[in-house]
Amino acid sequence: MEYMILNHTAETPGPDYGTPEFEAVMGRWMAYNQMLIDGGHWIAGASLAPTDAATTVQKSGGSVSGTTDGPFAETKEQIGGFYLIDAPDLDKALELAAAMPIDDGALEVRPVAFRPDA
């Protein structure tokens, strides 16, 4: 089965590029990605730019009713990235989500219902 993992985390700036802290953080993510690839779970994944770069297009009755600066919902936690993974069942998907190198935040796991390019 395919699952989407949505990372809801607070938007705090990470360590600066080139610092040892940055290398440490990146190392954890690279290891996580590699684990997904080696386990045959990886389909796609991405880290998103912060929500100050987000634009929301609101539609109503078939037409665009508004285009606004910012994310869909103004909450402390925002979707910071996603993974599309393959896992045999929900338990494995939850286990993979839990293994993500995120210290605080929520990981929403949703089964993929239909994917036209799959």
């Binding site: 896992a87 069942d89 929900l90 338990d91 998907a93 286990e95 089964p111």
Partner: peptide, 11 residues
């Protein structure tokens, strides 16, 4: 069914 919850002995 839809979330793919399996009848397994969990880790």
């Amino acid at each position: 069914r839809t979330a793919g919850m399996a009848l397994t002995i969990p880790s």
